[in-house]
Every structure is written in structure tokens, then in C-alpha cells.
Design a protein around this nucleic acid. Sequence first.
DNA 1: TTGTAGGCGTTATCAT
DNA 2: ATGATAACGCCTACAA
Lengths: 337, 337
Amino acid sequence: MRQRKVTLADIAAKTGYGTNTVSLALRGSTRISQAARDLIRGVADEMDYVPNKIAASLVLNRSNTIGLILHEITNPVLTSVAHMVQKTLGKHGYSVLFASSNGDPEEELKAIAAFRARMVDGLLIYPIAHSKLDHLKALRRNNFPTVLLIHTDATGIDAVGIDERKGAFDATNHLIERGHRRIGTLGPSFTSTVGNVGKLQGYRDALEAAGIAYDPTIVSIPIDHSIEASVHAMDELMAQDDAPSAIFATSDLTALAALRWAAKSNVKVPEELAIVGFDDTDYVAQATTPISSIHNDVEQLATEAVERLLFLIANKELLPPAETRTTPGRLIIRESS
Amino acid sequence: MRQRKVTLADIAAKTGYGTNTVSLALRGSTRISQAARDLIRGVADEMDYVPNKIAASLVLNRSNTIGLILHEITNPVLTSVAHMVQKTLGKHGYSVLFASSNGDPEEELKAIAAFRARMVDGLLIYPIAHSKLDHLKALRRNNFPTVLLIHTDATGIDAVGIDERKGAFDATNHLIERGHRRIGTLGPSFTSTVGNVGKLQGYRDALEAAGIAYDPTIVSIPIDHSIEASVHAMDELMAQDDAPSAIFATSDLTALAALRWAAKSNVKVPEELAIVGFDDTDYVAQATTPISSIHNDVEQLATEAVERLLFLIANKELLPPAETRTTPGRLIIRESS
DNA sequence: TTGTAGGCGTTATCAT
DNA sequence: ATGATAACGCCTACAA
């Protein structure tokens, strides 16, 4: 005995108006008399009318929904991005379909397909790998508004992201200025993980500028994204003969791991080991030894990405040339360095 | 010069079949000859056909989309829930609309309205307050499948959540067994925040069982969700004459704050101050001093919630009586206690 | 095995 | 100021 959903027709029947009048009235059209509008509005509320946007989407050819795909939702930075994106889009009347690709290209493709089938008006995506952008460029070629949430030098696709290269440069350079010559780095797979390509570059840039030779034996890559794996990686890194005196951690998570390693190894931070992280989350700012980190303005990033996406959506008939925007980070110096 | 979207009719025209045959063929109906199916499938792929699920939703009266509303996405536990929920639902062919209410009841209502208008088949929600469940119960009364992601004793609404009361009891009791009699607690607003109502109860249960008087002066409530605010709260809490020798932190975030406070105050953990957290995230497990915490099986929670929701959706014509499920946590003892 | 007709709830166009 | 009609793209009858 399930009550059918209330439709425009039901309200029309009850008020004596046509469905079309009801539709206009509920959307506040001045073409309808004030009296009629009030009456209709009242009856609609009374009947607990919920407009069916899906039906509207069909005729308007616009769903007022966008898709957000992140490659890893556990990451606190991406989490903030998700939050800001949803908040900003909500203000513009958009809802957001969310999916986490979890590092699996297959999942990413599935999510894209699912979202497209649901007629999302556009896509914000933090892709899995820098090198695998072709399918996303293809979307754009099909006039499908898409914005990457990363910084990339790739062309033919819009992107707004953090300037990892510069951030990494600043972090490394700061350690050099503190007198360190042997600077290790700790972070997930530099080649495959988006973002870290740039970070490795920035790290090398800084070394080169200071005339320090790049040494791959102190570039450490944890086996997975857990802190534990990074602590492990530290174990091996620091067991070397010529162990680093400073660590540039490419994420706050690995920075915390470095700190943890120091604690359990009775190594003093920053006296015996300096640490700089990346992203400046609460966790490093308020770690037992507050850790220096590169602060990135997630709010600005999210806002700009949303703006760009909405712009693309508004111009989807003839997409403007792809653009890349970058938001710089800034180094926050704390006790760890 | 925008190419229209490919529809069933387009494929029909190109293959010479009717739209209906094409529809059946693409869905793999055996009513269509194998040859026709292959042909149609091929042409569809060639034309890059993307089925319009929105149109299908309209006729099927089912969107294969559910809404997920969290009251705070920054929280690592809720983040994991979001991830698991999306992953599990994805396997069942559902997409998830996401919104963060950010602790604002107004936002929560807006999100619910937006999702209903988009015809979600059901709702998973981590509500803002225990006390404000009436609007959610109303949804259920209107045969709208809804599952709360919290543990609650409220009736008339489905819920699956962590047993906060028991977890808090175990945490507090553990500290008592370690010989502590003066146990403070640190966590966001016990009365308004969902979950913490139960935690305060469990804390008091344990005290009572041990014959320790409950003392509200050592129940500390940080001003917001930042670690910094909790460190501040610790400052005040520990400045008291009869300061606690142990802290039950109602979240891992506050546990980390307690640890941070100890570090900057040169207080030894666990010798001078014992700490137990709640949720057992990586951050406490791998803190400089690994912190004891209540581990909760987020994966199981998410799976059960999704299962229940799908069950409700399948029976939405006549919803079964509301049920509450609870998943117990377990204490993980580490160096902090 | 395939085609035809009708309708899902909304909006836009064109009348009145 | 309001109403009738035709879409939007798909699916489920029912027919052939």
C-alpha cells in the first residue's frame, strides 16, 4: 500500500490549474498571478511535493550533478578537497556523485562510465597516474567538461593543482639552508603516483642548485600508503653507512613516519635528524614535535577547480582551449627543522 | 557544432532494427538473436553509445543511486566509511551522491532535499545529533529507505553503528585496571555530538563499576575539532589542582592532542600520564608514542549498513520493522597506557 | 525474433 | 494569465 509520489499533475488536479501552470508557479514565474502562485505553493507544501529533477534533467539535458573521482579518499588532503568541492558546488545548486578509484585504473574507468550514464554535467578527477591521461583527454575532445585536480604539464586537458615541484624545491632548499648536505626523501612511488613526479623534480632541482649530487640510494619508497610501511622504509634508509641527516617527506603521512622512526630509534629531532613534510595537515602541525611542512591552500584549489568546471559546463557547446592553473604552497617552519 | 548524444534510436536507425530491439539486445536479452545482439553491440561501441540511465530511472522509478550524508568528512573514520560504502555499493551497480552536512542541521536538510529530488533510492546518513532524528524517522514513515550510520537506542529508524558505550567502558576500565583513579576525558561536546553521548555513558559506567565518583570538572570539551583546540583544553584540564593521571580521549584526534600536550609539557607518557584513544587510526598506532585505542571494524560497519539499506530498498513497498545493529570495538593496548 | 504504442514527470513552445 | 501539446530517452506491455 505504497503512496505514489506526488507529481505536478496531482497538484494540478487538486488546484484546478494545468500542470504547466503549476510548474511555472512553483518555479516562481511572474507569468503566473501572485494569487495562483501562493495557492499552488501552499498546496504543494501540504502534499509534501518533491520535484523530480530526474524528469527535469531529461528535458533540460542537464542534470545539475557533477562527478568527483579521487584516487584515494583516505588522504586527508583529498578529503578536504572533497569537502570544499561539495560545499562550493552545493551553493551553485549542484549535487556531487562521488567515487574513489583507489588506485585502480579499472575502477576509475568504471566510475567514469557510471557517471556519464547518469548524465553528470562534468567531472572533477584526481587521476591515478600522470602518464595515463589519454582517456581523460578523449572526454574533453567529446566536449565533456573535465578538470583534473592535479598540476600537470600535459596539454589538451584542464587542470588546477598544487605546484608540487616548487613546494618540493622549497622544502629541500630549506633543509640545505639549515646546513644539510645529505638529504633523503621518503614517499610513495615517484614514477607512478601523481604529484610525486613533480616532487622528485623539485627535490632534484634544489640539490642541483646547491651543487649536491643526486643519490638514488637515499630516495626511499615505502611499500604502501601506511605509516608503518614508511617507518620500515626509514629503517632501511637510515641503516645505510652514509645515512641522511635530513628527510624531505613527500607527504605528511611519511613525515609522521619519519618522526615515529626517530622516536623509536632515540634519534633527536631536529638535532640529529631534520624533517620537512608536505601538505601541512593538523597531524604534523600538532605532532609531538611539530613538523615543518609545505602548506597548500586546499580551499583555493577546490574553488578554482569548481569555477573552471562550471565555466566549461556553461560553454560546453564550444569548449575553450584547455588551461592549467597552479596554486603555490608555502613553507611553514616548525620545530622539526 | 556539438554532436548530439547517441541514443537507442540512432543505433536503431543505423542497424535497421527497432529501438526496442536495440534496447533488449544491449541488455543481453535472449529474446534477441545472437547475431543481432553482436551486431548491435558492435555498432553501439563504435558509436560510443552511453546509455542514459536518467531516462531509464524515469520509467523504472529507480535511480540506482543512493545518498550518503556525513556530518564531517575530515574525520578519518567517516572517510573510511565513505570509501567502503562507495566500494560496496558500486559492486551492486549503485552510484553514491555525497554531501557533508558539516555539523549544520540546515545543510543536512538541504542535502536530503536535494537527494530526494534526484530520486535516490535510499539514504545513508551520519546525522548531526542524536536528539534530532525526527525528520529522519519521518522519511521512513514515508517509506523512504534510510539507515543511520550510528548506534542509537531510538526506535522507528534503522541504524547500524559502533557500540560507543561499550568501547568507552572498555577504554576507561582499562585505565582503572592500570591503577588510575583520576581519569579525565577529552572530546567534543558530549551532549550535541552524535556518538559521544554513548561514550560519556560508557565512561561513567566504568567509573561507577569501580566505585569512582564522576567528576564533571575533569570532563573537558575542546572548543572545536582541531587538535589545537584540544591541546588548549588539556592545558586547562591539567592545570587543575587535582589533575588526572590518565585521559580517555573520545577520538584519536584528541588522543593525539593529549600526547602533544604531554610532549610540550615534558610530561612522560605513560608514566606520568596514560592515554587511551578511540577509533584506532594509523595516526595513533604510529604516533611517536603509540597510543592505545579502541579499534572499530569500519569495513564491517559499512558492509552491514549497505546490506541493510539494499534490503530496505528491495522491500520498500512494505518496509520491515526498523532494526538497530551494533558492531563492537576492541581495545588495542599500546605504549601509552 | 522483432516491431508498435504508451507512458514515466518535467519543461518549452505556441495558443488562447 | 493559463492551457494544450510535444518533446527528452528509455522500458514494458502487447502485437505481429
